[in-house]
């Protein structure tokens, strides 16, 4: 088991190294830079060149990468080309709203999805199972932004029950602000997750080891909790790691629609203004988060159902 954890962590380190290169290359590929974008109308070409030199944009890419990586390793994500402040501050300011949104969604989604998945799995092909399956299947086919647009129209514009956009203040102190965004994020995630838990439950229930445990007289409740659940949870946890990706896409959309000043909003702003240091910093943080989630999920799965080795 320790060897699996070590191998998996090793892979994560390699992934991290490659990701940092990739983030840098990808963001450097953006055509046109901030110097172009901001000042072309007011400055002469020579002034633009001077500005480039000042921002370090005239150096060869490899040198810029080494410089950037060195700074990143010491916790310095660079300076925003637009605001002039450190990127770390942008990260710090925007991460709160996104974290609150994500964690609140997961806090609701995970227990519900596990419960639904087990209910469906234990009643495979029964009436309840088919009803929930149909609903989750249909819900997961509706794009986030369609749900968002409709919910805002109905609950904010028409009925006026809930605020449609961010009006400043703390997300946690005014939970009403969170209701619609979470409702949007909730649908698809709960569907994807519960379907995986269902599949895991069905597989475990049909497995020979559960049949044998039942034949040895283990009562149903004990059977479900101790023999089925650990195995059933594995596809669910793996899906949770993948859900991170879906959820991130959803958060991006939700933040844009509800004008929440979170990570995604900062990222979209950064991309649009070609603020490359900001984009690099934010992308790196996101990629590292995704990587850690994947690492965590794999380790949890291995704890639930141990495997011999990571490598085939």
């Amino acid at each position: 088991m320790r060897s699996y954890a070590a191998q998996r962590a090793g892979l994560a380190i390699v992934q991290l190294a490659v990701l940092s290169v990739l983030v840098f290359v990808l963001t450097s590929l953006l055509p046109g830079d901030a110097a172009d974008l901001r000042f072309t109308e007011t400055l002469t070409p020579s002034q633009v060149a001077a500005l480039r030199a000042e921002l370090g944009l005239d150096q060869p890419p490899v040198e810029r990468f080494v410089h950037w990586l060195g700074n990143v390793l010491t916790g310095d994500l660079g300076t925003s080309l637009i605001s002039g402040g450190p990127v770390v501050d942008i990260v710090r300011h925007s991460i709160g709203a996104t974290l609150v949104l994500t964690l609140a969604t997961l806090a609701i989604v995970v227990p519900l999805a596990v419960a639904l998945g087990i209910v469906m799995g234990t009643r495979e092909n029964g009436r309840v199972d088919r009803a929930i399956t149909s609903i989750t299947l249909a819900l997961s086919a509706i794009p986030d932004f369609v749900i968002a647009v409709v919910l805002v129209a109905v609950f904010s514009l028409k009925l006026g029950w809930l605020p449609a956009t961010w009006i400043g203040g703390n997300l946690l102190s005014s939970p009403a602000l969170l209701i619609l965004p979470i409702a949007v994020l909730f649908g698809r995630t709960v569907c994807l997750l519960s379907r995986q838990v269902r599949a895991g439950t069905v597989a475990a229930l049909n497995a020979e080891y559960v049949t044998q445990a039942r034949r040895l007289g283990i009562p149903r409740r004990q059977l479900l909790l101790r023999h089925v659940l650990p195995n059933a949870a594995v596809p669910g946890v793996q899906e949770l790691a993948r859900t991170g990706d879906t959820l991130l896409g959803g958060v991006l959309v939700v933040e844009a629609i509800f004008a929440i000043p979170g990570f995604a909003t900062a990222l979209v702003d950064g991309v649009e203004t070609r603020d490359i240091p900001t984009v690099q910093g934010l992308t790196l943080v996101l990629a590292v988060a995704a990587l850690l989630i994947n690492l965590g999920a794999d380790l949890v799965c291995n704890r639930l159902v141990p495997r011999t080795a990571l490598l085939r």
Partner: peptide, 8 residues
């Protein structure tokens, strides 16, 4: 052999 729960 396959009657043993891999998770326990």
């Amino acid at each position: 052999g396959s009657a043993l729960n891999p998770a326990r």
